[in-house]
Computed example of a mutant assay.
Amino acid sequence: MSPETLSVQVWNLLLRFRKTVWFRVTYLVLLGLIVPNLLPFTAGGLGCLVIILVPLAVFLVPYYLGERSVRHFAVNALPVILMAILVGGAQSTNLLLSQPLAVPLSSVPGPFASPTMALANGTVAPYHADPPQAFTFRVRLTTTGNGTPTDFRVFMNLTTISGLASYVTSNFNMSFSATPGNSNNTHLGTWYEYTTLNLSNQIYGYGFSVWDKDANWTFTNLDFGPLTAPVANFYGLFVYFTAFSMILPFVFYYIILFMWWYTVRQRASRTRMLGAEPQIPKEKPKPKVESAEPTKSEKASKAAAFTCTNCGADVDESAEKCPHCGAVFEE
């Protein structure tokens, strides 16, 4: 078989496949796999672009492939949303659980950080473990001025997530870490730690904060950990978060769909109006006007329109003198 014949047969198979419902299923599955890979960009500066790009992709791909049914467009979004939520939840779960160690937490300059205090290298060890086990949280405090560990109070902020929208935050006072090389001068950097055994197989999030016993506070960012919950718990939580993140893009999708449907409807309406033959009403025949000759009385009235002032006889309006008395009329 020649390459030309093979390419023709493959092309014919693709054309026949395109006419089946499985072609539509194929591109919807591909869209369902592409959309969740765009969602992580919503957390950065491209968030607004992604919110618009996702609904445009879901609309334009079927449109480019020849789809024109409004009903199909409306239904297409549903499997894409479902697959994007399930796949996005799985990707987020895998990304978190594949981390071997905790990502160090630190304070970021801004409204939640005092310029005189900074926290860095906040971690928990072990990061992956099954309770009951000792979990140690450590963070380093650095201040702009000299100070002792007792001049500041450092806290470990632990959030316990027991449901999709149920969580409890607890603050634990950390103490000076008696490890070799740890400085007693906070200006040089002082380590604090806290060890606990009272953890279960729930989802936890942790962070750190410091108070200078006056009016200044500094907070670190937050992260999940330690990872003690089953995989299914994390998957359910991330599916919940992904579902919320999909609301706005697909609201825009149905707005785009409505605008397209309305535009097509108006264009079709104008086409029907312009293509119709003008309905010109037929003129009604005008009634015949009969030419009526003046009656004798009318002739007499016209004839008797003037009277001779000399003899009183009736005179025609065109007469120059009276036919009875011969008086001449003045014009």
Score class of each variant (00 low, 15 high):
Val251Asp: 08
Ala232Thr: 13
Trp217Ala: 10
Thr190Val: 05
Leu274Gly: 07
Ile247Trp: 00
Asn185Ile: 00
Asn221Thr: 05
Asp214Glu: 14
Pro230Glu: 06
Arg267Gly: 05
Glu193Phe: 12
Ala268Lys: 05
Tyr194Trp: 15
Tyr253Leu: 00
Trp191Gln: 03
Lys213Met: 13
Leu257Tyr: 10
Arg272Ser: 11
Asn184Phe: 06
Asn201Tyr: 03
Ile247Arg: 04
Gly205Leu: 05
Thr271Ala: 13
Leu274Glu: 14
Asn198Gly: 09
Gln266His: 10
Arg267Trp: 12
Asn233Gln: 12
Thr186Asp: 01
Trp217His: 06
Met259Phe: 13
Ile203Gln: 03
Ser209Thr: 04
Leu188His: 09
Thr218Tyr: 05
Lys213Asn: 14
Gly205Thr: 13
Glu193Ile: 06
Asn233Met: 09
Leu257Cys: 05
Arg270Lys: 05
Ala232Pro: 07
Gly207Gln: 02
Asp214Gln: 09
Ser200Arg: 03
Leu274Val: 10
Ile256Leu: 14
Gly207Phe: 01
Tyr262Met: 15
Gly205Glu: 15
Trp211Ala: 07
Trp260His: 09
Tyr204Cys: 00
Phe258Lys: 08
Thr242Ile: 11
Val239Glu: 13
Phe208Pro: 00
Ile203His: 01
Gln202Tyr: 08
Asp214Thr: 08
Ile203Arg: 04
Trp261His: 09
Met273Ser: 10
Trp217Phe: 10
Ala268Phe: 07
Arg270Ala: 08
Ile256His: 06
Asn216Phe: 04
Ala215Ser: 14
